[in-house]
């Protein structure tokens, strides 16, 4: 049926209704984050698009593997074997140290440090939003990923998962403007919070007093406060300290150690409060709210991020 005049009250009325629904939806999504199911359903529709976009890149990597000559593979194999031997030797030492550490902790009746579970995820090559630092990963609730899960690469902490779908998940990098991670200076143990700046190459350490013992080149490791990120993973290296006596705090910049824009593979980490539960979407879905109350530090919202100011000292 084709009508000549389509304008009428119905379109305007629907428009007004949708405006109200949109406002309600935005409020609910921003305040309570209960809309994972909606997001999840819609992401099924988007999955083929992401798959198709990522396909050429995947084909490129695949063809690179297929086309590489036997000699190359043999060389690489030998190299990797050497590297594995070296790391195994180092691991032996570490193993003993870990055992000793555990024994000493037991003597002190300190909380035992448990090991974490890992899973390798691949970054799907899609651009999300040029003004946010998001990446899309090829693991979702089907693999036990949960919202708030830390992700790391071979060099350091990369970020955390913010939306998790069945087959994919979206992660926020530590450099996003609304991200913050509790850190500790490796050398002195001074605790702080590293805020994302929206720039890929540096984080901001805020609320550091003038008399703090800091040097350029100091390594920042995750402090484990806030209980979202596991402890003692490298995060960044201090690159610039600006001590302006007119300001209350000093201006400290740190460069992330993780290769945020070049890594193709990342590790999902299951921390001790999240046992690696295979397909059980209920469990991860309920945790973020509890987390939000107890540890607002890494909640990916600006308002929440503002708060941990006093926790930083």
């Amino acid at each position: 049926m084709q009508t000549l005049f389509l304008r009428g009250p119905s379109a305007t009325l629907r428009m007004i209704i949708f405006v109200i629904i949109s406002l309600a939806l935005m409020t609910v999504d921003h305040r309570w984050k209960h809309l994972d199911a909606v997001r999840n359903t819609l992401s099924y529709l988007l999955y083929p698009v992401e798959y198709v976009v990522d396909l050429p890149i995947r084909l490129y990597y695949w063809s690179e593997e297929v086309m590489s000559s036997q000699q190359n593979l043999l060389d690489e194999n030998r190299q990797l074997r050497d590297m594995q031997l070296q790391s195994r030797v180092q691991l032996q030492k570490l193993d003993i140290l870990e055992k000793e550490n555990e024994r000493l902790r037991k003597l002190l009746s300190a909380t035992p440090k448990t090991t974490e579970d890992h899973l390798i995820a691949e970054i799907i090559s899609v651009d999300v939003d040029p003004y946010r630092h998001f990446i899309v990963l090829n693991k979702g609730t089907n693999d036990g990923a949960y919202r708030g899960q830390p992700i790391i690469d071979a060099h350091g902490v990369m970020g955390q998962i913010v939306y998790v779908n069945a087959m994919t998940s979206t992660a926020m990098l530590i450099t996003d403007v609304s991200h913050a991670i509790p850190v500790q200076i490796d050398r002195t143990g001074l605790r702080s919070v590293a805020f994302g700046t929206g720039q890929t190459d540096y984080l901001d350490l805020r609320h550091i007093p003038h008399n703090a013992d800091l040097r350029v080149g100091d390594k920042l490791i995750s402090s484990g406060l806030g209980e979202r990120f596991p402890r003692n993973y490298p995060v960044a290296v201090i690159t610039k300290i600006d001590r302006d006596t007119g300001e209350t705090f000093i201006d400290v910049r740190a460069e992330p150690l993780a290769q945020l824009d070049t890594s193709r593979e990342v590790l999902l980490v299951w921390t001790q409060n999240h046992e690696k539960a295979m397909p059980e979407p209920e469990q991860p879905a309920e945790t973020p709210d509890k987390d939000a109350i107890e540890k607002p530090v890494e909640e990916p919202d600006k308002e929440d991020v503002e708060e941990p100011a006093d926790a930083a000292e």
Partner: peptide
Amino acid sequence: VSHGAILGQHAL
């Protein structure tokens, strides 16, 4: 969803 934005932002 594809932008990881707040639901309703682009929709509105």
